[in-house]
Design a protein around this nucleic acid. Sequence first.
RNA 1: GCCAACGUAGCUCAGCGGUAGAGCAGCCGAUUCGUAAUCGGCAGGUCGUCGGUUCAAUUCCGACCGUUGGCUCCA
Length: 661
Amino acid sequence: MVMHVTLPDDTELTVPAHATGRDVAETIGPGLAKAALGTVVNGALSDLMSEVPDGAHVRILTKRDDEWIDLARHTLAHVMAQAVREMLVEEGYPPEAAKLAIGPVIEHGFYYDMDLPRPLSADDLPALEERMRAIVKADLGLRTYVLPREEALARYEAAGDPYKTELIRDLPDDEPIRFYEQGGEAGFTDLCRGPHVPSTGAIPPHFKLTSVAGAYWRGDESRPMLQRVYGVAFATADALEHHLWQVEEARKRDHRRLGQDLELFRLDEEVGPGLPLWLPRGAVMVEEIEALAKEMERKGGYRRVRSPHLSKEDLFLKSGHLPYYEDAMYPAMELDDVRYFVKPMNCPFHHKIYDARPRSYRELPLRLAEYGTCYRYEDSGALMGLMRVRSMQMNDAHVYCTEAQFEEEFLAVIDLYKAYFELFGIETYEMRLSKHAEAGLGKKYVDEPELWLRTEAMVRKVLTEHDVPFVEAEDEAAFYGPKIDVQITSAIGREFTLATNQVDFAQPARFGLTYAAEDGTLKQPLCLHRAPLSTHERLIGFLIEHYAGDFPLWLAPEQVRIVPIADRHLGYADDVRAALEAVDLRAEVDARSERMNAKIRDAELLKVPYVVVVGDAEEAAGEVSFRSRREPDGKGVALDAFVEHLREARDARASEIAPIA
RNA sequence: GCCAACGUAGCUCAGCGGUAGAGCAGCCGAUUCGUAAUCGGCAGGUCGUCGGUUCAAUUCCGACCGUUGGCUCCA
């Protein structure tokens, strides 16, 4: 009984039937067998303990291959679970008290979700890590076997483990119920589809437990909260060190830290959670962003409108928001038996503005824009610096158009996204077409099954025909229609949605919006909700991390810091400031009784793009000397030329500045 | 909202049953200096809030508020 496998160089190898990856490696040669850590079978990661199917393409992994570290990460999840169990047993708990849920490999590492008899804290991690290292050092061999479903179930039912039994029950009938065991029966066994390294000794010592967190069983908030321990693991010490360095660097550009250091915003406990205060420097940025958006929208044919911060309940009942989102709205205030709500979005107001008088097809597309101030009662646990807040100002607009105009309007919005991304140097982003799920009709989504399919198809068609790359996401639409979100990863690795764009077929109907068509009949417009710059809060939070606080000239809260060398230069320093302010450049003179070095240092810490130093030489010649975070230092530059140079760079909103001639 | 941790001066942090300390920032004074911290002095805290234990609580316990890491959610 033999079978054949094909190696990467296309040689065919004859091995005994039911041969494992290890058997294949041994057949190739003893040296390889010794170095082998895992396999790739028919393109999928597998391991040495698993049988290889007849006719498979097999590649043996050694530590020269990048892929094998995921095997070690997976085994580390088991090693960690074993360490947790050992620790609890030592504390006097029975072994089955630690119930294991799932322990997958993730980017850079692994985690394991567990239901434990006592809460773990970060203080437990060093001890756990030490136990893990002992298990690695003990070099426990791994083996895998398959059990019949009933036997597997009986095993976990006996231990009273609801998680594994649920997992087993949910496995398809043809899926083998596989176990991995390390260190024999006395060691550690887990229901697992693999793959793993052949023994715990193969795990490189470059791992670290990073955090403990709660996680709902199967991500469902109605189910038990489990304890999740996260770890990272790498093939080399350098890789681990590099990762930890990156984490540290990321921490340094965290917008909350920089927002404080650069005096941009503040979250004050007494004001309320998720209600940021914009400090003067941050407010400058808000206004620059707003000026940018207004300029872009003017060019894009938008008209500006303004709407109140609150309205009567009826408006939100009509829009349909209230039934879906009441929990996430600040509660009603009641006056003279009328309930008012602070607005969580602007669309109902814009619909009313559309409806202010009868509309003609000649007016369409009608694009109404507003930097609307909204309030949402986000879950307390969801709040995070500026990225997730309860008061926000949205770069909002609604485009009302005919179905025939939809394509062009939709693309114009996508182009707007792209123009912004280019301006901010955002290179990696992902467009997501978020669709409804049938099960949610009438609950999460308005109950218009045909309209859903039709709008989704419309959007997909436009994206596809114009080669806009996108992925599709099930069950993530807005309640009134499909949406296009643009996911961005900030410099510190947090992924979140910046731009968003939704197609709304429901609200125009609910508001009875119409326009007189060419043939004199009344038709219903489509509505596009779009917010390419998200909210001020989220965008600026993102930009702080993106630029690490080192903003381009046009965005910098303070553009020029003027440092007089001695008090006798204060007069000239003030002349320089006046010259800059004459063209609306933001400049300040540091008139403190400090040494020049200290003033320069403070300006650098605030990441002021240009520091101008003026002394006797500059004053006599009407010149400036400057140091810049954007270009080589300048000496003896005529004041006029310097002002003009900065004015040009500012007006162009340049992120790169060509050195002054 | 859920699980866990944390909360001491404007900021970063030390202290931890006997009633609070440093550096930076601030204020005052001296210094007037050529590209990342001049020197000296002063002032600043109901130790998140409220309760409990104790002769005594910033320190131990509980609740609440806030923040953080995750989970869930995100019109």
